[in-house]
Simulated assay, not measured.
Amino acid sequence: METVIIIVAGVLVTVATYLLLSKNLIRVILGTAILTHAVHLLLMAMGGFKGESVPIISDKHTTYVDALPQALILTSIVISFAVTAFFLVLAYQVYKRTNTDDLSKLRGYRHE
């Protein structure tokens, strides 16, 4: 199962790299969002899927699921959602003021 998740994370990194190299501002924002999801999958795969029960101490189970990667991923999801929302609002304001979302045209833009 970890192999499939790592391959999916690799595909997501490839798609995110393609989107990040685009000239469109919205594609760059979507590329950053996809890249964070690829990192979430990679963290989940690194945490492993082995374990039979929740980490409650008892005599029945000897291996437990590690909860630390899950907590890190949950925190990262919340932070990436906030950053993506901020980037989308910023892109909307840039488009409203400049009437373009092309990054090559925005490079030479001077605020009047």
Rank of each mutant, 00 (worst) to 15 (best):
A45G: 04
V78K: 06
M44V: 13
I56L: 13
Q70I: 15
T84V: 06
V8E: 08
P69R: 03
R97K: 15
L42Q: 06
L90T: 11
F87C: 02
S58M: 05
A85M: 06
E2T: 14
Y64D: 04
A33C: 12
L30N: 05
R97E: 15
T3N: 13
E52T: 12
L103R: 01
T36R: 09
R107S: 14
I73Q: 04
I29C: 02
A71P: 08
I56D: 07
K105A: 14
S104N: 15
V15C: 07
L43V: 11
I77T: 09
I77E: 08
I29T: 03
T98P: 01
L106R: 01
L43T: 07
E2P: 08
T100I: 06
F86S: 02
T32Y: 14
V54T: 10
H61P: 01
A91H: 03
A71T: 10
T84G: 03
T14K: 07
V28S: 05
L72W: 03
R110I: 14
Q70H: 15
I79W: 04
T3W: 12
L21K: 09
S22V: 02
E2M: 13
Y18C: 11
T84M: 05
I29R: 00
P69C: 10
T62Y: 07
A33R: 05
K105H: 10
M1K: 08
A16W: 00
L43M: 13
T84R: 01
T75S: 09
Y92N: 13
S104F: 10
V54W: 11
I6K: 11
V28K: 08
S104C: 10
V11C: 13
K96E: 11
E2F: 09
K105P: 02
E2D: 14
H37P: 04
S58P: 01
T32Q: 11
R110K: 15
V89H: 08
A91P: 03
H40L: 09
